[in-house]
Amino acid sequence: MDPIISMRGIVKHFGGVTALDHVDLDILPGEVHALVGDNGAGKSTLIKILSGVYTPDAGEIRVDGQLVKFSSPRQTRRLGIEVIYQDLALVEDFDAVSNLFLGKERRIMLGSQTLPILNQSLMYRQALQIFERVRIKIPNVRQRIFYMSGGQRQGVAIGRALNSDNPIRLLIMDEPTAALGVEETSKVLDLIRHLKTQGVTILMISHNLEDVFAVSDRITALKTGRWTATVRTAETTKEEVVSYIVGAKTQRPESVNF
């Protein structure tokens, strides 16, 4: 199977610090791929490159085999790459519907003219459909985000990422369960499994190996900016993944640290 996203030899420096040192990452269509590593391993830098926030100093990125240059978040969104950041980037004072359509509001049409007037009822109906489709339960979509639980917020954020005008190629989730309790975490993990059955490809960053093993198909580990391993979740153990994370073990001979 050909990867939908293929990163090769990605290098990123910040001043004298090498945040990423020739990192490779392939994401296969339909998989849940987990990106693991300790603080400072380069996970965030890597997804920021993948979402167009940073440009790499070296290396190449292919989307469906085509060489592309990522220049801005707007451009990567056009390619169907959506990111849900850890802080979720929701407007807490707005309700779920308004957040779902933030920046892509449906507007009233007058003939062929689009007026700068919001089409509230259309957005409301579409919001219900989207939440229904991805099985996100929001008791009251007119309620402000401020009053919602962490899991519901995550649901709204996922709904927004999927509510794209472009067909979604890759959904990147940054620590989707970090701020959640046990029950909410299991709901979000269910949601990830459900999205997978819908054919959504997911790259998920997580500190929590329990969660990683619960939903992912493959795992890539980074250690201080270097790729250490990519393994099938079904064929590995937590202990092995931990040793990749701390760098005690690596699939890359030339970068063995002693």
């Binding site: 978040p73 950041y85 802080d87 980037a89 929701l90 407007v91 807490e92 004072d93 707005f94 308004s98 933030l102 920046g103 892509k104 509001e105 507007r107 700068p116 007037i117 919001l118």
Partner: peptide, 19 residues
């Protein structure tokens, strides 16, 4: 849209710029 976006930059500047 004008009102909505003024409220959005006030409610969460980062989120509004991100979209």
């Amino acid at each position: 849209l004008l009102g909505r976006y003024i409220l959005a930059i006030g409610g969460n500047r980062k989120a509004s710029e991100y979209v």
